[in-house]
Nucleic acid binder design. Structure first.
Length: 526
RNA sequence: GGGCCUGUAGCUCAGCCAGGUAGAGUAUCGGGCUUUUAACCCGAGGGUCCCGGGUCCGAAUCCCGGCAGGCCCGCCA
């Protein structure tokens, strides 16, 4: 069998792009791919998926021997349609303002839009993804697609007709697919443009207001006109992609199924109005929040790439995004440990000396290369099960977690010295353990006998693990209680669970005095 | 109204997009962890791959038709 590139779906996409370009007879000197960077809300993992996958296709194209470039395009001319959960109320005053004209609620960037796209850029950089950044506002200011906009507006009636045929939407039969920013109230979408004067390249509009997300937003009534070669307005989504593709010569762009209709229209516009064969597309499903503990707790809390990176490595995040493109992906913080271990598994396959014996192995090796952006390390890292690190992290005494986990690992003979990678991994697992494991040390009911036993235990515990372990058994025996039950009680007090690590050594680990204090407190509380 | 996704072990899911012996975690059971405690380690049992047809030497995987659940779009962008 002929294997394309590294054998993954990414290579297959790249291959199809190349084959399509060949059959179109277009130049293959530079194959440019694009993804949009949302700038209207806090970037979700799905937003990163879009960019990361486009970046991977670019790598696959290069790997197949073609020059390629990946453009990350920030849609910062878009108007704010809804204030995302958790952001300040005053943003409601800026509804329908272009996100690039809204102050940054976090006060660290020049605008709301810049802040949002910079969050995504931050995630991309943390993952090591390379890209060329472009801003919509800037593109309009520089008149980047004035030529295309002119063609579109000259043919607006034809396009309006096509939009109706493709999507059933009749709106653009009576108005131009262009949204001016109202010169008077500075908002976008509200002004209806009905006249295009091609001699002076101006649209004439009236700020009438529009319905956005089931709510009508009143316009200011201003009547004006604007030239289309500036950033005083933008093309409607139904035609804007086409203009962008044609002016930037984009050959590949993926899209989510939520904008499938817009893409269909844009393809038509690119092919029929702009004489630019539309880019090759891949449609992907949405990422859905499964609603892990954290997410469901505060409604509207977005599952950001940054959240993932608190608990998992960039490679684990890229594995999530690169594993496959078909199918709905459900997201949960609870899955991160699985992905961490899966990275180790495919790393082992990648570094195994054996010749890959099946397509399956070839794919996994390829996948491993992609999660390292085709720059895999020279040596495998130390593989310590993430779940083990979480267990250790969960019981690690406060304030010296890393030290505790490292010592345990040495004891287990899993590591000799902790290198930077191991430390990093431990830190991630500790974050997961402390924030997801929910160590709930609830109040526990103790009867008189148990109180007496604990009191006695406190005085017989020592700094010697074995002696302390023995002391627990001795006490249980003396009071004729099943050791099992006594252990359970102690676990509940010390860890909030019914079972746990060997207690003698653990008590020494957390510190004899601290253990005594916790036990004494439990007696007090009853 | 239009489009898409999912259905695999008791449970949660991977494998499907490039057809080649049915997988993992968890739960259950057994063993180990230099002497009674496991969340660690080793092992075992457990499947009508939703149903029906088709293609193929060969189908969980590809095609057609059902059933069940979910998501997206429907005059916002």
């Amino acid at each position: 069998m002929q294997i394309i590139g590294k054998g993954t779906w990414i290579d297959l996409v790249a291959y199809k792009v190349i084959e399509r370009e060949k059959s179109l007879g277009r130049s293959l000197d530079l194959i440019r791919v694009e993804s949009g960077l949302g700038a209207s809300g806090i970037p979700h993992i799905g937003s990163l998926a879009d960019a990361a996958r486009a970046a991977a296709v670019k790598l696959a194209l290069e790997n197949l021997g073609y020059k390629s470039e990946f453009i990350a395009f920030s849609d910062d001319m878009d108007g704010l349609r809804k204030v995302p959960h958790g952001l300040p109320e005053w943003l409601n005053d800026y509804l329908a303002y272009p996100v690039s004209s809204i102050p940054d609620p976090f006060k660290c960037h020049e605008s709301y839009g810049t802040h949002m796209s910079s969050m995504l850029i931050d995630a991309m950089e943390k993952c090591g993804i390379e890209f060329k950044f472009m801003s919509g506002r800037d593109a309009y200011r520089r008149g980047l697609y004035t030529k295309q906009a002119v063609k579109i507006l000259e043919n607006w009636e034809k396009i309006g007709q096509a939009i109706e045929e493709i999507t059933g939407q009749t709106k653009f039969k009576s108005q131009l697919p262009y949204f001016p920013i109202c010169e008077n109230c500075h908002r976008i979408y509200l002004a209806r443009a009905t006249l295009y004067d091609k001699n002076v390249q101006k649209v004439v509009y009236k700020c009438e207001g529009t319905e956005i997300r089931k709510k009508f937003i009143k316009g200011c009534g201003y009547e004006g006109e604007t030239k289309i070669d500036k950033d005083q307005g933008k093309l409607a989504w139904k035609v804007e992609f086409a203009a962008r593709w044609a002016s930037l010569d984009i050959r590949y762009e993926a899209y989510g199924k939520d904008i499938a209709d817009s893409v269909k229209v844009n393809d038509w516009v690119a092919d029929n109005i702009l004489d630019f064969p539309h880019p090759y597309h891949v449609r992907y499903e949405m990422f859905l929040d499964k609603g892990g503990k954290k997410i469901s707790k505060s409604a509207g809390n977005v599952f950001t790439p940054q959240t993932w990176l608190r608990y998992g490595t960039p490679q684990s995040l890229l594995l999530l995004l690169y594993k496959r493109i078909v199918g709905t992906r459900t997201l949960s913080i609870e899955d991160i440990p699985n992905y961490m271990d899966e990275v180790d598994q495919i790393e082992e396959i990648y570094f195994s000396k054996k010749e890959p014996s099946s397509m399956w192995e070839i794919k996994l090796r390829g996948l491993y290369e992609y999660i390292n952006l085709l720059k895999p390390p020279e040596k495998p890292s130390k593989h310590i099960p993430y779940s083990l690190l979480v267990q250790l992290g969960a019981i690690a005494p406060e304030g010296k977690e890393v030290e505790y986990v490292v010592n345990k690992l040495k004891q287990y003979g899993m590591i000799k010295e902790a290198d930077e990678k191991v430390i990093q991994r431990i830190k991630l697992a500790i974050n997961w353990a402390k924030e997801m494991h929910e160590v709930k040390r609830e109040k526990i009911q103790l009867n008189e006998k148990e109180k007496q036993m604990i009191k006695e235990l406190i005085s017989t515990l020592t700094n010697d693990p074995k002696e302390s372990q023995q002391a627990i058994f001795q006490t249980a025996k003396k009071y004729e209680v099943e050791p099992k039950d006594f252990f359970k009680t102690l676990y509940k007090i010390l860890l909030g669970t019914e079972s746990g690590p060997r207690l003698g050594p653990y008590i020494v680990d957390i510190g004899l005095e601290k253990a005594r204090t916790i036990l004494a407190q439990a007696i007090e509380e009853n």
